[in-house]
Amino acid sequence: MESITKNRQPPRVLRQIIERAYGPDQVPDGDDFAVELGDGYFNIAYVLTLRSGRRVVLKIAPPAHVTVLTCERGIMRNEVAALALIADLTDVPVPAVEHVDVTHELVDADWFVMPLIEGATLAALTDSAALTESAAAGLRRDLGALNRELNGIVGDRFGPLHMPGFGTWREAFASMMEGILRDGERAGVDLGVPYEAIRGELAAHLDVLDEVTEPRFVEWDLWPGNVMVLDGRIVALIDHERALYGDPLIEAGFTGVDLPDFGDPSDFMRGYGLEELTPAEQTRRRLYSAYVLVLMIVETAYRRYPDDGQYHWARGLLSGLMESGGR
């Protein structure tokens, strides 16, 4: 996906990055050692082939001059922190971080490198009909189980991993929602529903957020495009930049509970070990769905995507969600 947040670099700079991360003996000749990965929506990512022939992935944060959403400030450091936590505290497969640079000496942004994970994403395999329905369902169940293991990590405060955080989930989620709403207001984005209606919906249901008393590690962005599959099994989960301490029900795998356009969550939930939601959980889930839709609408103004398909799709879903009320 094309976006102004993608911080592309010339071969000269990419060679300097390789030298810093792996040493001068790994700097390749020629200009064909770097291939851009085009699936991401935010950071630029390259597959780099080292002189030894080994392939690694470089991720570079957006250029310093590009305005990002409030929730996206410093999120590459958040991803590095998430990868360390997952590797240290779980058996969930994730790439190893091989080098991190936050000096901004070679480029005007944070960057890090990790091994290339062979395979294809669950989204790509599903879209291309490369999986039988039985195999796809099994992988969705496996994803649910892995996600539950991630949620087993307990923090000491709510909010992003790389920030001070909040004492309650009510405060943390209210801050998240207000942040994206203010981003939208600054950019003059039409949500299709009044901004105050979103604020009112949240204010009316703050009490259900108080049921969440333990800060759990949540990925939030763990959709099938971030699940790497090889030989019929999940070999890695990628793109952990939006991880936070919060309510596991905010995970992407549950979004289809009230937004069927995001896919049937039944297999994921079965693997997770959660068959149905209580009325209070359903209300929390609706708030989280409203949040993700507002973010998807607002980000289109900041990313300047080449078409407005995502804007209109998410805007229609948000209007329908708000109209549905508590049904």
Rank of each mutant, 00 (worst) to 15 (best):
Asp32Thr: 13
Phe33Pro: 10
Ala34Lys: 11
Val35Lys: 10
Glu36Val: 12
Leu37Trp: 07
Gly38Met: 11
Tyr41Ile: 12
Tyr41Cys: 12
Phe42Gln: 09
Phe42Val: 09
Phe42Thr: 13
Phe42Cys: 10
Asn43His: 13
Asn43Gln: 11
Ala45Pro: 03
Tyr46Arg: 14
Tyr46Cys: 10
Tyr46Ile: 09
Leu48Cys: 11
Leu50Val: 11
Ser52Thr: 12
Ser52Gly: 09
Ser52Pro: 10
Gly53Lys: 11
Val56Leu: 03
Val57His: 06
Val57Asp: 12
Val57Ser: 11
Leu58Gly: 01
Lys59Asp: 05
Lys59Phe: 07
Lys59Trp: 07
Ile60Gln: 06
Ile60Ala: 14
Ala61Pro: 06
Pro62Ser: 07
Pro62Asn: 04
Ala64Tyr: 06
Ala64Thr: 08
His65Asn: 13
Val66Met: 06
Val66Pro: 10
Val66His: 09
Thr67Lys: 13
Thr67Leu: 10
Thr67Gly: 03
Thr67Phe: 03
Leu69Phe: 03
Thr70Met: 01
Cys71Pro: 00
Glu72Arg: 02
Arg73His: 08
Gly74Cys: 00
Gly74His: 03
Ile75Gly: 01
Ile75Met: 05
Met76Leu: 14
Arg77Thr: 00
Arg77Leu: 11
Glu79Gln: 07
Val80Arg: 02
Val80Asp: 03
Val80Asn: 01
Val80Gln: 01
Ala81Ser: 02
Ala81His: 01
Ala82Trp: 02
Ala84Trp: 04
Ala84Gln: 11
Ile86Pro: 01
Ile86Val: 15
Ala87Arg: 15
Asp88Lys: 13
Thr90Ile: 04
Asp91His: 13
Val92Leu: 06
Pro93Tyr: 07
Pro95Thr: 03
Ala96Arg: 13
Ala96Asp: 07
Ala96Thr: 07
Glu98Trp: 05
His99Thr: 04
His99Ser: 02
His99Met: 02
Val100Asp: 03
Val100Lys: 00
Val100Thr: 04
Asp101Met: 02
Asp101Trp: 01
Val102Thr: 11
Val102Ile: 09
Thr103Val: 02
His104Pro: 00
Glu105Lys: 04
Glu105Ser: 05
Leu106Cys: 09
Ala109Cys: 04
Phe112Pro: 07
Phe112Cys: 00
Val113Ala: 02
Val113Glu: 01
Met114Ser: 09
Met114Glu: 07
Pro115Met: 04
Leu116Gln: 14
Leu116Ile: 07
Ile117Tyr: 06
Glu118Asn: 08
Glu118Phe: 01
Gly119Thr: 11
Ala120Ser: 15
Leu122Thr: 05
Ala123Lys: 12
Ala124Val: 06
Ala124Pro: 05
Leu125Ala: 03
Asp127Trp: 14
Ala129Met: 10
Ala130Phe: 08
Leu131Met: 05
Leu131Thr: 07
Thr132Leu: 09
Thr132Cys: 08
Glu133Trp: 15
Glu133Gly: 14
Glu133Cys: 12
Glu133Thr: 15
Ser134Ala: 15
Ser134Ile: 14
Ala136Asp: 13
Ala136Trp: 11
Gly138Glu: 14
Gly138Phe: 13
Gly138Arg: 15
Gly138Met: 13
Leu139Gln: 14
Leu139Cys: 13
Arg140Leu: 05
Arg140Asn: 15
Arg141Lys: 15
Arg141Gly: 12
Arg141Trp: 12
Asp142Pro: 03
Leu143Met: 15
Leu146Glu: 12
Leu146Lys: 14
Asn147Glu: 15
Asn147Gln: 14
Asn147Ile: 08
Asn147Trp: 08
Leu150Tyr: 08
